Amino acid sequence: MAKVALRDQLLTARRRRALAEIGDAARKIAEHLLADADVRRAATVAAYVSVGSEPGTSVLLDRLREAGKRVLLPVLLPDNDLDWAAYEGAADLVSAGRGLLEPAGPSLGVEAVATADVVLVPGLAVSRTGLRMGRGGGSYDRALGRVPVGTTTCVLLYADEVLDHVPAEPHDRPVTAAATPDGILRF
């Protein structure tokens, strides 16, 4: 119940954010990530297309490609697991269920996330120990379970979504960092 209550509170706060704040956060997060040593060294970055009032990723995705990175994006499967496909640009994205945008290219399989040097994931909050709280479907916990130990895994959030504690369950996977408009925090 604690997770459900906190999730509702965080989603309500996100819906109240001004468009200007969302856009500003997207630009700042992209700048921080593009300057990060792990991202600069990465050949492949797994990321996602933001929706609604999530910190935006469109600028980041295009700048990663411009920097010569291979960018993988998730494709939601019927069982809520994540397949992956290469991002070839915004024109390559197609509408999918739940208001998501996904790449139109060929599927690379659920294990493709393991080939990424950096994995960027959505979330609603993270604890100061790296426990990430998502929307509750378990898709990213499954994907993070396939990522090799030592790979940078980073949740993109607003600064006030980094909390002292988030409720956790045994299946919840931690991340190694959080990118916010204020910078990158390592756990």
Rank of each mutant, 00 (worst) to 15 (best):
L156Y: 10
V147H: 06
G134Q: 13
T129G: 04
P181K: 08
L61W: 05
R98V: 11
E54I: 10
A20N: 10
P106L: 12
Y140Q: 00
T151V: 14
H171G: 05
R173K: 15
P181S: 10
A35P: 10
V75P: 00
S139F: 06
A112N: 00
L60Q: 08
V94F: 05
M1C: 07
D79M: 01
D83Y: 06
V94W: 06
R7D: 08
L19H: 09
R27L: 14
R63G: 09
K69G: 03
L64M: 10
E88N: 11
D92K: 04
A37W: 06
E169D: 12
F187T: 08
V149W: 11
L131V: 13
Y87Q: 02
D79G: 03
G145L: 05
G56C: 07
R40S: 06
V49Y: 07
P55N: 08
V121G: 04
D172K: 00
A143W: 02
V71A: 03
A18R: 13
G138T: 01
L185Y: 07
L163M: 14
V39F: 04
R128W: 03
H171E: 06
E88C: 01
S53R: 13
L108Q: 13
G137I: 09
S50C: 14
S139D: 04
L144K: 12
L77W: 01
R186H: 12
G89E: 06
V51Q: 08
E169R: 11
E111W: 00
D38Y: 13
E66Q: 15
M1E: 12
G97V: 12
D83I: 02
T151W: 04
E161W: 04
T115D: 15
A143H: 03
R7C: 09
A5S: 11
R16L: 11
L61M: 09
F187Y: 14
V4Y: 06
R186K: 08
A35H: 14
A2V: 07
G145S: 05
